[in-house]
């Protein structure tokens, strides 16, 4: 079964639907028109560009180019995660980049080697698409996890120093904060997993079905990707935090003053 293509004219009809939020915004004074059009135009331009780019990427299907593109995606994801966390980019970019790379590559290659029966593990259709799914979905968890960890220690400085004064090792003093931030980072993913299929049909499953596959195949892909997202989120959050400790804390185990963009955090 082939996916039914949408003509440019038909796609234009979709934009007509925006008349509804525009009208509602005018009636209730939401002031949403400008941000709505800004986001819709930005999304459309970005997707058109990536559509063309992916078309050639899939056509060439060169392992080196595919890997390079995944690395670029990881770089952008790390920037976005740090930007949303109120931590200075210079402080945790390298730990974040290494952590995201490890978690993405390990999980994607595991799927491509052992789960999906493909001959070329560098195949753009799987490497880039799966990598993108993982990065996109673990991004929010990473933002929550990293910022919770550092903000909580800053907010709780006196109790944290009290634990150090009790003779705790740096690891012992940090562990409660690490636990809390990882739990919070995973909460949205675990919640969406628990309601998946009942409350909503997940994006990937919808995509696979629209792509012409049977619901049975779509379900298998969806289960695979959700497990991959949980694994990559938990791995990247923990690794980023652990690898950033050396630059964010001094040798006495005290959080550096210059970790946050805004010192009033």
């Amino acid at each position: 079964m082939e996916t039914v293509d949408i003509s440019v004219f038909s796609l234009g009809l979709t934009f007509l639907l925006l008349a509804i939020p525009v009208a509602l915004s005018l009636i209730f004074g939401f002031k949403l028109i400008k941000p709505l059009f800004h986001s819709v135009i930005r999304m459309s331009i970005q997707l058109v560009m990536i559509g063309f780019f992916l078309k050639y990427l899939f056509l060439w299907n060169n392992a080196f180019v595919n890997l390079l593109w995944l690395i670029i995606m990881i770089t952008v994801a790390v920037f976005s995660a740090i930007k949303g966390s109120s931590i200075k980019i210079g402080k945790i970019f390298i730990p974040g980049f290494i952590s995201f790379s490890i978690s993405t590559f390990v999980v994607v290659f595991y799927m491509n080697f052992f789960v999906i029966p493909i001959n070329n593990v560098f195949d753009a259709r799987y490497l880039i698409v799966l990598g993108g799914m993982l990065l996109g979905n673990s991004l929010r968890g990473n933002i929550v996890g990293i910022s919770t960890f550092y903000k909580n220690i800053k907010k709780d400085t006196k109790n944290y120093l009290y634990v150090l004064s009790l003779g705790a090792s740096h690891y012992e003093a940090l562990l409660p904060y690490l636990r809390e931030s990882v739990q919070l980072a995973l909460k949205p993913t675990l919640a969406s997993m628990a309601t998946m299929g009942i409350v909503a049909l997940p994006g990937m499953m919808t995509g696979v079905i629209l792509g012409g596959a049977s619901p049975e195949v779509a379900i298998k892909y969806q289960i695979m990707i959700m497990i991959a997202i949980v694994v990559s989120t938990i791995t990247s959050v923990i690794l980023t935090i652990l690898m950033s400790l050396r630059v964010c804390f001094n040798k006495y185990g005290v959080l550096q003053q210059d970790v946050f963009i805004n010192s009033n955090v």
Binding site: L164, S165, G167, Y252, G253
Partner: peptide, 12 residues
């Protein structure tokens, strides 16, 4: 400092 913390009892 890590050893001193193991030998002292501190209350802020």
């Amino acid at each position: 400092a890590w050893d001193i913390r193991k030998r002292t009892a501190y209350i802020d």
